[in-house]
Amino acid sequence: MEVRNRIVGFLLILPAFLILALLYVYPLIRAIWMSFIKDGFLSLANYAKAFDIYSRDILYSVVITSVTVGFVLVLSILLASYLRFKEWRFLDIMYRLPLFIPFLIVGHAMRIFLAPHGTLNSLLTRILKVEELPGFSRSWIGLLWTFVWVMTPYAALIILGAFRALDSSYIEAARNLGASKGKIVFTVIIPMCKPSIMVAAILTFVRTISSLTILVMIGPNTPNMITVDMMFRINFFNDWGVANALGVISYLIVIVLAVYYLRFMAAERGGIKG
């Protein structure tokens, strides 16, 4: 009976396991393997070339992504704090809208909005009473703006969910002892929702560092982010080796973050259990 149960259990998970193995594990291992192959031989040449040509882009990717995460967290926490204390249905619906707009459309819309004679500049030239302003659509400012615009609703959704799930008595206890709402956010809500904020930060980081569409639509021509470099290596040079090496580097960046997150979670649990 027990053997039969085991077989049934195995058969039940087999489709999911096969899909994971075929569509995720195999390509991942193959990409890692190919990143170490140059002219049919095992070597680090692809990595040497990747760092030689793209080290500035790798740094740029990390910086832009980290700054995006910073802005996204600040905005999401502000939004979530506001909505935790005050019911405002309109804002509650509006902040989620970007979730339903494809990246391609966002990129296009932002190109129009941030162009040299786009919506933003038309407005700014009138307010500042100047003739002309440079466009932001092909600069790091435009890119950052767009990333923050796209990523904030995801992070806010996670963070607001955590804020709302927090038992009201923890907040009321602080108010009862004289704390203002701002004080409560920093001393009670954020520390108690730290794990969810970490999840939001990591997801934002991963989604930003791996995005391509927005960069192609609105990003500066140089420096560029890793994903665009990968695309170039494949499209123009058919250089899968360096492209894979760049892919592995971005994996490693994310893994560093994942390890940090897991250690943080373990410490949190350890701290609570004592």
């Binding site: 038992d167 009321e172 009862n176 704390a179 203002s180 108690m192």
Partner: peptide, 20 residues
């Protein structure tokens, strides 16, 4: 007056001690 300005102390049924 808002709760924080009343100088009354409330004891919550679930104690509401901040775990962190």
């Amino acid at each position: 007056l808002p709760p924080e300005k009343r100088n009354v102390a409330m004891f919550f049924q679930n104690y509401a001690l901040w775990p962190h």
